[in-house]
Each structure stands twice: as C-alpha cells, then as structure tokens.
Design a protein around this nucleic acid. Sequence first.
DNA 1: TTGTAAGCGTTATCAT
DNA 2: ATGATAACGCTTACAA
Lengths: 327, 327
Amino acid sequence: MATIREVAARAGVSAATVSRVVNGVPGFSEGTRERVKAAIDELGYEPDSLARGLKTSQSALLGVLAPAVSDALASQILSGVESAARESGHAVMLGRTGAGAELATDYLRTLRAYRPAGVVLISSAITPDMRRAAGSRIPLISVAIRKGSEFASIAIDDELAAYEGTKALLDAGHRRIGLLAGDESSVLVNKPRERGYRRAMAEAGATPLEERGNSLYESALPALERLWRRDPGLTAIFALSDEMGAAAVNEAQRRGLRVPDDLSVLGFDDTPTSRHVHPPLSTVAQPLVPMGELAVRVLLGEHGRNRILPHRLITRGTTGPVPAYSP
Amino acid sequence: MATIREVAARAGVSAATVSRVVNGVPGFSEGTRERVKAAIDELGYEPDSLARGLKTSQSALLGVLAPAVSDALASQILSGVESAARESGHAVMLGRTGAGAELATDYLRTLRAYRPAGVVLISSAITPDMRRAAGSRIPLISVAIRKGSEFASIAIDDELAAYEGTKALLDAGHRRIGLLAGDESSVLVNKPRERGYRRAMAEAGATPLEERGNSLYESALPALERLWRRDPGLTAIFALSDEMGAAAVNEAQRRGLRVPDDLSVLGFDDTPTSRHVHPPLSTVAQPLVPMGELAVRVLLGEHGRNRILPHRLITRGTTGPVPAYSP
DNA sequence: TTGTAAGCGTTATCAT
DNA sequence: ATGATAACGCTTACAA
C-alpha cells in the first residue's frame, strides 16, 4: 500500500505532481509523466479512495437500494446499474429496503456518510423522509416506479403498458380475460396496471375479472383458483408479474389445459423467470437493464431527469388466438 | 452535514470528547454524554465514514464479487451476506466477476482502495493474482466453491452431495439415470459433482450416462435431446443445477412424459428457480443464505476458516419411484 | 513546469 | 474526565 509520497520520492518529484499525473490535471512535462508512471507501476500504487473522497467530499461510490437482494426484477436493474457504474469508474454499494421505508432511511443515512455520487432506488418511491435522510447533497433517482415529477425517476408507463397488453389479448379475440393483480399496496405500479387493464376491457365492452396475489409465484395459485371458480371458461390470463404468469402456465397445464391452445397467458416485466416455463412466457417487457444503466447516467448528470422508457410486448409461446370453442 | 467540531461546540466540549462518546471509548461523564447526545440529535450529526476510515485505515465496507449480478445462486448468497453485514454494521460493495479472472483482479484493486473489512467471492476460487491484487491487509473468502485449504472458503461437499443425490435416485429403484452436467471448466464445483454421480452409479453397478450443458436453462435443451437419443428409456435425470432441472421437467412434460410418474428429475442448489416449475423441483440443497451469512462472520473473525456446510436432499414433487414399466 | 502548505473530518496520543 | 495536537493520504490554491 504505497502512498502518494512514496511514489513522489521514487520519481523524484513532489506529491502534488504525482497527483496531477494521476488525475490528468495539466501541469507536468512528458518526462515527468513517464517517471511518475514508472514509479507507480513499480510500487503498485493505487490512490486511497477514502483520502481522496475526504478531500474532495465526493466518493466514486454509487448507492443502490433494492426491496430484496434476491428479487429477480431488482437483480436485472442492478445488473444495468453495475455495468454503467463500472464504465464510469464507480463502485456500487448495495442495501436492502425491505417492506417499509424504515430500512431505506436507515440505509440512506449510512450511505450519506460515504458521500456517494448518487443513489438508485429500485421499485421504491422517494419519500420526503428518505430525501432528508440522504441529505441535500446526494442525488437520488428511483427506477421502475413513477411518482409525480418532484423526484427523478426512470420507468415505463405502467398504465399504458397494461392497456396495450390487454389490448393485444383482446385483438387476438379474447374476451374472458382474467387479471392476476399484485399487491394492493403497490399504488404506483400495480394500481396503474390494473387501470390499464380495466380501460382496455371497458373499451372492448368486455367484463373485467380480477383476483389479487402479491406478485410472487406462490401467491398466484390461490388467486388462480378463485379466478377459475368465478369463470371456468376464461380463455386468457394477464398476470401482472412474470412469476405469477409462470405459475398460471404451470397450473393451467396441471389442470390439463394446453397453453396457448386452450388458455393464453401473458406476463409482465420480462424477468428471466419468463424463460423458465414451457412454452416460454409472452410478456409485457420493461427494459430493465437499460433502465438501470440510464439511472446511473442521469445521476451522473449525463442525461435529463424523469424519463419514461418504452415498454414492449414480447410474444413468446404462451399467447395465441382465442380457442374456437370454450374448453 | 454537521462535523464533529460543530457538535463539540454545541455541547461545549472538545471534538475528542465527542469522538469518545460516539465510539463508546471510556473517558467522559454521564452529564457530558447526555449533552453530546443531545447536540448530535439536534444537528443530525453522522460521523463521516471516509474520514474515519482514513484515520483508522479500515472502512466498514464489505466487498462482494459475483460471477453475474443477476445470477440466482449468487443472489441468494448475496442476500445472506447483506443481512449479516448489516447486522454487524457493515455496508456491502458489489462487483461482477464475469467469466475470466481479469475483472475480478481489477475490482479487487478498486476495492482495496476503500480499505474494506473483507471480501467475499461468490462461486469463484481465489487465485494468487487476486490475492495479490487485494493486498495483504484484506481478508478474502470464497463461497460455494472449495479449493485446497490455502484460502478460506465456505462450501458444501459437492462430491458427496452429488453422490447422495444419485444414491437417493438409485434407492428409489432407478438405474437408467441421465446426468445433466455443467460447464467443463467448472473444475471445482461441477467436476466433483460428476465424480459423485459416477461413484454412486459404479457402486450400484449402473451405467452412467452424461451430457453437458452450462448450468443455464437454455443449455439443457440440446443436452436433454442427446440424453434421450442415447437412452430413450431413462427413468430419471439428475441435473447439476436447478435451471437445468427446471428445463428437464418442462421438456419432459412437453414430450408427454409425466413427472415424476414416468420420469424423475432431481436438481441441484435449491435456488428459487426450483419452485418455478410444476411439480416443484426436488433438489440437492446448498444452504445458500446461511453460507453468505457465515462468510461474513468468518471474515469478521467471529468464526474459524474453511468450513464445509451440510447439504440436504429436498424431496419435492419431481422425484418418485421408478415406473413399473419403461414408458 | 513544479513545489509548499493548508486542510478535508476523524481518532489517538499525550498532557492536564 | 477532558482538551490540544498530530497525523491518516490526498487535492488544490498559491508561490516560485
């Protein structure tokens, strides 16, 4: 762990000069540059980020908060964040939000002490408490969730995406489309999606049919049961998460329904889970990785704030035309 | 962003005293403690981690390296790491290893500059290069991979686990058990598992039948195809990853085989993927979350090094007795 | 082009 | 029990 002074001594210059060379700040000759570089290599010198951060009151750290570390959707976004961060010479600090906002503010306070260049909040809206905990210096941005325009965010238009997903099912001739909704508390993501579904159904004069899970695989089973009980002749299911979509595919097949021949299933988000069923799940895709990348670019000031990214309907194997007869 | 001096001024004491109170270092009276605490609350003071780390040459950061940020197995381990880290007052820095060891050494160099309390390497052995890049100060530990005993690690006994998994299939009467192996380059994880399979098969006088994927879902399809071509009468498939196991379940059902009535499938690792098929996948479980937790405890010096954790056979819905007749 | 020196916010040593 | 002071390793005016 050589210090800048040791490098300076070895190169026969002052620490200030080494600093200039390292940071590419003008003010040294070519010869000096070479001698300094040589000394750096010989000593294996690496600038101490702690000292640098202290001096400049800014570290090359980027905070990320995810609802759960092992969440598939969050992992995809995190993946984009990580690569963009690395590209711009930043390292990533990761924390878990959990259900409530308490852990988040806690973690934000911890983060602040490291003077990060910014913080990305995944699937979590920015509350005034959080904003306060982070201090005024640190830019925050939320991803995959949209709220007013007071805070920066990167997301899709959930209402529109769900509307178009439903529309695609309707256009394929489906009328009896069951909705597998997510948690009621998800006011900024699930609620808009539900509204999109209802709007499309209403426009088509079809009757909405909704049951609620919590977006996870297991939660879909009872909701599915209720859906089928209310209408055994459903020809399509729109699940507001890929996990619930995967559950619908598996459960339908278990009951002897062919997918998509007897029942179409449409998922949401385009997480890797969508590829873990057979046939692979059609889904309303969010560009998760690019969203993560864009978030760090915005934080780093390379882009404007508050962007809506385009969603995309990906037709894989689980959606098809309405069956000629009700199974 | 109040500093320690501002707190000191407000409490009418010196910065040194505030520091003592904050760190619980003896040398202050009860009255002083109260006044300092009050000043801290009033100013919303939070010690600057950068300055503290610089002074103590040790930050409360824990590095984690994962092969891919969105890897399901790594996510589980990461989840354990995060919770143990938080519990001990540490924050987590996350980086991606990628395929080669180059990114890893790169990242370790970056990490070193933050003087972390330790680094956890997920599914990646510690090479001398890495050891060097990290510097001699920083303890490293690898998780879910085992190598000699020169470096600390937390893992299961892969050979034994695969042996017992195979044995369970054999005990259920299966003889024609196909192996879905992982990448050949995985010398420290997949190879031992293959050996365990072969040993069990040999002991039972059964003929091993192996095809290779790369542990991911898609890679299993062609391998499966080859397996069935070599023996259309297979009664069981042992997949050395849950993703490949899930693929086997889906593909078998697609071909009209009932699982587990016609074909048993056993996975490996116990990632969430195992619950995303129907019936849910039986699997040879690694205690991934506890492994992550233990890794940070070992790094922090609360436990010994080099631990082998117990694996566990989890029988869910995809394994059963050998069918009476060959389908 | 280069060096000197101050200071970022903290902790640790040494007095008092 | 408490305070003054000197680092930790770096960057950045300001001088030269």
